Amino acid sequence: EPELVFKVRVRTKDGRELEIEVSAEDLEKLLEALPDIEEVEIEEVEP
């Protein structure tokens, strides 16, 4: 069974934007590691 992958769009407080694809596990780590995120948009990517 393929692992869930999420497309994550992040905007930081200083206005930088970042778009990455991460696994569910990595997404959890990412959110814990970035306390200064202003906006996060997450969508599931079809395998």
Rank of each mutant, 00 (worst) to 15 (best):
3 E>M: 05
27 L>H: 00
12 T>C: 08
35 P>W: 14
10 V>I: 13
18 L>D: 01
34 L>G: 03
47 P>R: 13
9 R>P: 00
9 R>V: 06
35 P>E: 14
36 D>M: 05
44 E>H: 09
34 L>H: 05
9 R>T: 06
22 V>R: 00
22 V>S: 02
41 E>C: 13
39 E>W: 15
39 E>G: 09
12 T>S: 03
42 I>T: 03
34 L>A: 03
27 L>S: 00
12 T>Y: 14
36 D>K: 03
12 T>F: 15
6 F>I: 15
39 E>R: 11
41 E>K: 09
2 P>H: 08
10 V>T: 01
22 V>E: 00
11 R>Y: 01
24 A>R: 11
21 E>N: 10
44 E>T: 10
4 L>W: 09
27 L>K: 01
14 D>Y: 03
41 E>A: 07
13 K>M: 05
15 G>W: 01
14 D>H: 04
17 E>C: 15
8 V>H: 00
15 G>N: 02
30 L>C: 07
40 V>L: 11
11 R>N: 01
40 V>F: 12
42 I>E: 02
32 E>W: 08
17 E>A: 08
18 L>R: 04
8 V>D: 05
14 D>C: 05
33 A>N: 10
9 R>F: 00
17 E>T: 14
33 A>H: 08
23 S>F: 07
41 E>R: 09
41 E>I: 14
22 V>Y: 01
41 E>V: 11
23 S>P: 04
3 E>P: 06
4 L>N: 05
37 I>E: 04
37 I>F: 13
13 K>D: 02
12 T>D: 03
26 D>S: 07
27 L>I: 05
45 V>T: 07
23 S>C: 09
5 V>G: 09
26 D>G: 09
28 E>P: 08
21 E>I: 15
40 V>E: 02
6 F>N: 13
25 E>C: 10
7 K>N: 05
25 E>A: 13
13 K>N: 05
28 E>F: 13
31 L>I: 06
27 L>M: 04
13 K>L: 06
44 E>A: 14
15 G>C: 03
8 V>A: 02
37 I>P: 04
7 K>W: 01
29 K>T: 06
21 E>C: 15
32 E>C: 15
39 E>L: 15
6 F>A: 07
20 I>R: 02
5 V>P: 02
3 E>C: 14
46 E>C: 11
20 I>W: 14
46 E>T: 13
7 K>C: 08
17 E>D: 06
38 E>N: 06
18 L>Q: 04
35 P>Q: 14
18 L>E: 03
13 K>P: 04
8 V>W: 00
42 I>S: 02
17 E>L: 15
18 L>G: 01
28 E>T: 09
39 E>V: 15
32 E>N: 12
17 E>H: 11
14 D>M: 03
29 K>F: 07
39 E>S: 14
36 D>E: 08
44 E>N: 09
40 V>W: 13
31 L>Q: 02
25 E>W: 06
33 A>R: 10
26 D>I: 05
37 I>A: 10
24 A>T: 04
36 D>V: 03
16 R>H: 08
39 E>T: 13
46 E>M: 12
42 I>M: 05
1 E>V: 11
10 V>M: 05
31 L>D: 01
18 L>T: 04
35 P>L: 14
24 A>V: 08
42 I>W: 12
10 V>N: 00
31 L>W: 06
6 F>R: 15
36 D>C: 10
21 E>P: 02
31 L>C: 10
28 E>Y: 13
5 V>Q: 11
11 R>D: 00
1 E>M: 11
38 E>K: 06
41 E>D: 08
29 K>H: 05
15 G>L: 01
4 L>E: 04
9 R>L: 01
2 P>W: 08
11 R>C: 06
29 K>A: 10
25 E>D: 09
45 V>L: 12
11 R>M: 03
1 E>Q: 12
40 V>D: 02
34 L>R: 04
37 I>G: 06
22 V>M: 07
5 V>T: 07
36 D>I: 03
28 E>M: 14
12 T>Q: 04
47 P>W: 04
36 D>Q: 05
37 I>Y: 14
16 R>E: 04
35 P>M: 14
23 S>A: 09
41 E>H: 12
23 S>N: 10
19 E>L: 14
7 K>R: 10
24 A>K: 10
16 R>K: 07
44 E>V: 14
30 L>D: 00
19 E>Q: 09
34 L>K: 02
24 A>D: 02
1 E>T: 11
29 K>Y: 05
35 P>I: 15
8 V>F: 01
44 E>W: 11
45 V>M: 11
42 I>G: 02
22 V>K: 00
38 E>T: 09
25 E>I: 12
37 I>V: 10
12 T>V: 04
42 I>Q: 03
21 E>R: 12
5 V>M: 11
45 V>Y: 08
21 E>H: 11
40 V>N: 02
38 E>Q: 10
8 V>R: 00
32 E>F: 08
4 L>Q: 07
11 R>I: 07
19 E>K: 07
38 E>Y: 13
14 D>Q: 03
47 P>V: 11
42 I>V: 07
3 E>F: 04
19 E>F: 14
35 P>N: 14
43 E>C: 10
29 K>E: 05
29 K>L: 08
43 E>L: 15
42 I>R: 03
44 E>I: 15
13 K>A: 08
45 V>F: 09
4 L>G: 04
26 D>N: 08
25 E>M: 12
13 K>Y: 01
46 E>A: 11
47 P>Q: 09
16 R>W: 11
8 V>S: 00
33 A>K: 06
2 P>E: 05
46 E>V: 12
42 I>L: 05
36 D>W: 07
16 R>I: 09
42 I>C: 13
32 E>Q: 12
11 R>A: 02
37 I>S: 06
8 V>I: 06
43 E>M: 15
39 E>P: 03
7 K>L: 06
5 V>C: 14
35 P>H: 12
32 E>G: 09
31 L>R: 04
21 E>K: 09
39 E>Y: 15
18 L>I: 11
9 R>I: 09
29 K>V: 04
18 L>F: 14
36 D>N: 09
27 L>G: 00
41 E>M: 12
24 A>C: 11
34 L>N: 07
14 D>F: 03
16 R>T: 08
44 E>G: 09
16 R>D: 04
17 E>G: 03
15 G>T: 01
46 E>I: 13
21 E>Y: 15
2 P>M: 06
31 L>T: 02
25 E>N: 11
47 P>T: 11
44 E>K: 11
1 E>G: 13
5 V>F: 05
32 E>K: 12
35 P>A: 15
8 V>T: 01
14 D>W: 03
15 G>F: 01
34 L>P: 01
16 R>S: 06
28 E>K: 13
5 V>H: 15
2 P>S: 06
